[in-house]
Amino acid sequence: MSSPRYIGRFAPTPSGYLHFGSLLTAVASYLDAMHHQGCWLVRMEDLDTPRNIPGASDHILRTLRTYGLHWNGEVLRQSDRLQRYQQVIDQWLESGQAYYCDCPRREIIANNGVYPGTCRERQLPAAPDHAVRLRVTDQPLSFDDRLQGTITRNILQTSGDFIIRRRDGIIAYQLAVVIDDIDQGMTDIVRGADLLDSTPRQLWMYQLLRHPAPRYLHVPLIMRLDGEKLSKRLGSAPLEADQAVATLHRALRILTPDIPPELASAPVADQLEWAVRHWQPERLPQSRQILDPTMVQG
């Protein structure tokens, strides 16, 4: 039996740095992979080319090494795989599973964020400013998350036919990650709970591509005391190499609350070794977000 395969996902935008929120989900994915004697791969999700910063990917990779998160194999960069994504889009356009759309964003906003299917039967031709949408089922899709339990969504009712290529030509995240996960043989996905609502859309694409979906574990988002998410979009401070020992210990206090205090000054390799052996994700809070306990407790 082959080893389980996990993915560490990193979008090198807009700051060009790795932040604590991203580190936390990366560590959770790494711990789960190592605990199950699996492989941990790294992917740069750099499709949003106008926002990419030169050197950002290399900076992220250096930071991962500094924090002891060593990956298997070559780093996959989505910007190198545009032809592969377009191949799938073309197949779906040809079969009628996907279609062109010129609807403005305000129309979807006016419909409570659910695309009303305006272009479903219009048979618009290809055009530089047309998005591509994927037809979705009107049936509920369910999956069992290892922490959050059973999640059920009807995509047509919650979002409608969704975009797989934007009007500016950029491939949508939803499509790219599914194709990458299939091509890389991913068996397990560990990521933040903010992506829970994306999972049914990805399950639908797995069905269309006739490929089994991976197992999912969505860990809670860590919120600041003011209620804001710890993320690069909120301007969180970039991780500093000389603070790796203290910052990793802070992350492990959240993910593995029983970590011994004496490990606070231990090398990152020793901290990770302990955390891999004691990894119990089922002990994490079964919620989408929690306050940062390391800040609450001081």
Rank of each mutant, 00 (worst) to 15 (best):
E240S: 04
L196P: 05
P200H: 05
L272R: 08
R105T: 03
L47G: 10
D180S: 08
R106V: 04
T256S: 11
I7N: 12
P220T: 05
H70C: 15
D188A: 02
G68Q: 09
V88W: 00
L272A: 04
E273F: 03
T118V: 11
T118P: 05
G8M: 08
T158C: 04
D48N: 08
M1P: 15
S236F: 03
G235H: 00
T256L: 12
M295P: 03
R224H: 14
G169P: 04
A246M: 02
S3N: 11
I109W: 09
E45W: 10
Y115V: 04
L208T: 00
E282I: 13
L31I: 12
L31S: 03
E262T: 14
F162R: 08
P116M: 10
Y216L: 05
H36T: 13
E74M: 14
Y173V: 02
D32S: 12
H249K: 04
L217Y: 02
A241Y: 00
Q91T: 08
L156I: 10
Q271E: 04
I109H: 07
I151D: 07
P54Q: 04
A241D: 03
P238Y: 00
T158H: 12
D194A: 00
L82N: 14
M34I: 15
P125M: 11
P140V: 14
I189H: 02
M295E: 14
R65Y: 10
R201W: 01
V27F: 09
A11P: 14
P125R: 13
D145P: 06
N72C: 15
Q207D: 01
Q289T: 13
A241H: 01
L209Q: 00
M223E: 13
Y6R: 08
G227M: 10
D181I: 04
I170D: 00
L141K: 14
R77S: 12
L61A: 03
V178A: 02
L225K: 11
C119Y: 07
T63W: 01
R165E: 03
S3W: 09
S29H: 03
D258Q: 15
M1N: 14
H278K: 03
R165T: 05
M186C: 14
A33Q: 07
R224G: 13
A244I: 00
D90V: 01
L41M: 15
M295S: 13
R43A: 13
L252W: 08
P54G: 01
H59T: 10
I290K: 12
D194R: 00
L252A: 07
H218P: 08
D188H: 09
A269R: 15
Q184K: 05
L134C: 07
H130T: 11
V177D: 05
G227L: 07
A266M: 08
S15E: 09
Q286T: 12
T152C: 08
Y17T: 08
L24R: 09
K232L: 02
A237S: 10
H70P: 04
A244L: 02
S198T: 03
Q87N: 14
A213F: 02
V245R: 06
T256F: 09
L195R: 01
D58P: 02
Q297Y: 05
